[in-house]
Simulated scan of single mutants.
Amino acid sequence: MNRRETLIAIIMIFILAYIHQVSVESNVIVIPSEGTSDLIREDNVSVLDWWEVSPVHYFLTMIGLYLPFLIPITGIIVILSCFSFGIRTIHPKNVLENKRRQDIFQTIMDNPGISHNEIENVTGINRSSLKYHLRILMREGKISSRKFFKTRHYFGNGSRYNTEDQIFRLVLNCSTTENIYRYINRHPGCTQKDLIEYTKLSYSTVLWHIEKLSSGNLVSINKEKNSNHYYTKKTILQNSD
């Protein structure tokens, strides 16, 4: 039960109570305060009809008298409103009945490793709404995500490829990155100088691809004798053969 539902339920209680109060045409007796010296005089006591008393008076009185009963009554009203207005609980069996979540899920299944911005461009769903639906899909176990190389990527659960395999294929979707990875695989312990001589690329470009491989957990970096030496991960190698 969120704040909005609670507020609506409380307002409904007050409105119903006020309608009941005015419907019985009850009177309100008004007497002076205790500090008044002539309290016992009958002409100081007056009787007002219900319409002469402001709704604020009724509401404040009801808060003082019925506050202990408001919480359970509010819960009952919210439960009844869920049945009346068709509010449904989201669970794994009906999570994809929503058209937007269905489109998001299908987009992820068709494009394993797709990023948030790419999903937004493909589906046309705005950022805040997309973030909400992605959170629900992950909560219900339909998708998973992993952040590497400063970007979060999404994968569909239940695919024939596990997350590690999908990341492996995603990282190596660039021919240059794959070429560097295969060189490291064939020459374990090679240095950045070796990679620059092999690829004929600049220092910064080689470093960018190394960071990408490292972020995807495909390559480990060991510092030996003031130089970084690169090795492919054995667990990943088994998936790449």
Rank of each mutant, 00 (worst) to 15 (best):
E120V: 06
Q21I: 13
R186F: 10
H91W: 11
S227W: 15
V56H: 15
I90E: 02
G189I: 12
Y181H: 03
S175V: 12
L7G: 10
H116N: 03
I184P: 00
S26K: 04
K147G: 08
T163H: 05
F148L: 01
P55R: 00
E140K: 01
W208V: 09
G141S: 02
I76L: 15
N239S: 07
R3N: 14
E120H: 06
L130T: 03
E52K: 05
N173F: 15
G35H: 11
N162E: 08
I13D: 03
S128A: 08
K147E: 13
L16V: 12
A9I: 05
E164T: 08
S240K: 13
F69T: 05
N162H: 08
F14D: 02
N185G: 09
I73T: 15
S144K: 06
I77T: 04
S115N: 05
Q21C: 10
Y203D: 14
D103E: 12
T235K: 09
S159R: 00
T107M: 00
M62P: 02
V22R: 03
V122I: 14
E97Q: 09
L172Y: 08
L65K: 05
I31E: 09
F148E: 03
S202L: 07
L213K: 01
W208K: 15
E34A: 13
L172Q: 05
V206C: 05
M62S: 05
L130K: 00
N94H: 04
S37L: 09
R169T: 10
I87D: 14
N117V: 15
I40A: 10
S129I: 14
S214A: 07
E164A: 13
L207G: 05
H20R: 07
D43Q: 05
V47K: 02
V56P: 11
L218N: 01
R186T: 10
Y231K: 00
V53P: 11
S204I: 08
V122R: 00
V22C: 13
P112K: 00
I8F: 11
H116I: 03
K99Y: 12
S81Q: 13
V22T: 10
I79W: 10
I108A: 01
V30Q: 07
W50T: 14
K234T: 14
K233V: 07
H20N: 11
P32Y: 13
M109W: 11
F85G: 06
G141A: 02
N179A: 12
G158M: 06
S37H: 09
I136C: 03
Y66R: 02
I90K: 01
I63K: 02
R3Q: 15
I40Y: 14
R186Y: 09
M12Q: 10
P68Y: 07
V28F: 07
W50N: 13
G124K: 00
I114E: 00
I221E: 14
F83L: 09
R3G: 10
F149S: 00
Y132C: 02
D194C: 07
G124F: 08
W50Q: 06
R88H: 12
Q106W: 08
L134S: 01
H133T: 01
R41V: 13
Y230G: 00
N126R: 02
D194I: 13
I87L: 08
R4K: 11
L67F: 12
L48Y: 15
I210G: 01
K193R: 10
S128G: 05
K99C: 04
N111H: 15
E211M: 08
N98L: 07
T205L: 10
F105C: 02
Y132S: 02
D103R: 03
